[in-house]
């Protein structure tokens, strides 16, 4: 039994030593906004925040989360970035989008008005096969309205 702090709520979850955070979020807690697209830490679709820092839930073991607070896309649904992504059309199939928004939220918390180079650096780990990248840049540069 492990206690997990997710989006402001406490949860008792079961898992083996090999259980990943993504499995717990999606399977046990029903938080399916966190997508798994590669399952080995290469694509960024499963990005969540651990105490505000981006982490890949598919290669983060439940046991390694510890006391850190997990924030998933469900905890960021009212973040202005969500509207900015929709306004800018930074959503095509949408499978990578929650992970993109979580990464972007970590970026703008540290740097509210990032330069283009800062956006490209911070977002380079989130793959999008549909190619929404130009619109993601636009969304992140206009998120404050």
């Amino acid at each position: 039994m492990t206690e997990l702090l997710v989006n402001g709520g406490r949860h008792e979850v079961h898992g083996s030593v090999l259980t990943t955070l993504a499995e717990v979020l999606r399977g046990h807690l029903g938080l399916t906004g966190t997508k798994v697209a590669c399952g080995e830490g290469h694509c960024g679709a499963c990005t969540v925040l651990l105490d505000g820092a981006p982490a890949l839930a598919c290669i983060t073991l439940l046991e390694a989360v510890g006391e850190r607070e997990v924030t998933t896309i469900e905890g960021l649904r009212d973040h202005p970035l969500v509207d900015a992504f929709v306004r800018a059309d930074a959503v095509q199939c949408g499978f990578c989008t929650p992970g993109q928004i979580v990464s972007a939220a970590a970026l703008v918390r540290e740097t509210p008005a990032p330069t283009r180079e800062q956006v490209r650096h911070a977002m380079a780990g989130n793959l999008c096969r549909c190619g929404t990248y130009p619109k993601i840049e636009e969304a992140i540069s206009t998120w404050q309205g």
Binding site: F85, V86, R87, T97
Partner: peptide, 15 residues
């Protein structure tokens, strides 16, 4: 803007 953009962006869309 996409009529289903929010559902996808907020992680509510069920794939």
């Amino acid at each position: 803007a996409r009529v289903d953009g929010l559902q996808r962006a907020r992680g509510e869309a069920r794939y």
